[in-house]
Amino acid sequence: MKKLRVIGFEFGDAPFNMALDEAIMRSVGAGKSPPTLRLYGWDPPAVSIGYFQEIREEVDLEFCHEKGIQVVRRLSGGGAVLHTPKELTYSFSVEANDPSVPQDIQGSYLKICAPIISALREIGIPASFRPVNDIEVGKRKISGSAQTRRFGAVLQHGTILLGMDYSLLPALRARAEKLTEKGAKDIAGRITTVAETLGKEVGHVEFSRILVRKFEDHFGAVADFSDLSEDECIAPTLEERYRSIDWTFRR
């Protein structure tokens, strides 16, 4: 990979964030945009649910409404995630046949998570990969990713918990049968953050910088900070879909 386009850190709301990931993925898949790393945050806080999840099983909609938490359905599978403004989120899009990303799904998760692990280690966090798609510190999850392959592209997006607003966790309807296996009482006990691990805060922009450097190293690419293409400004129309009841409540 010669060039990696970087869309620098910015906060967005949930439908915008998901629409822009999709717009970038479509453009990359159509060969109109280079491989792209986008860094972003969530404001207001939001819950994203996996493509196949049943919304009412996963989300306490009343709690979300009360707290001003948005709910959005992702294009990617996987589980429900609470995104608070303290989280740093990345999305990485490459053409489906890009040789720098393995065709097999497990291998590709590892390849795209590797620079994130390197960045965490650089700031002193002993992070390691936990198959299929998590990054852990000790037994606690600090980053989780989800992948979708469509429109001629691979999109992997995921969380990096720089911090977490634990008071919003009741937004997720945790299921007892899922938690017992991993040996923790509740979701809060299964996750950790950069701030907790280091005892100090690391900012979104500061960590983004390290992350970009690690992606350059791991993919042998030069970062190119550039704007979205005209093509990707279709995001507003996609955004409407992500805001729609039809899409959000389709399962």
Partner: peptide, 8 residues
């Protein structure tokens, strides 16, 4: 559920 399927 919270599984992955490719293609979805």
């Amino acid at each position: 559920g919270d599984f992955f399927a490719h293609p979805e």
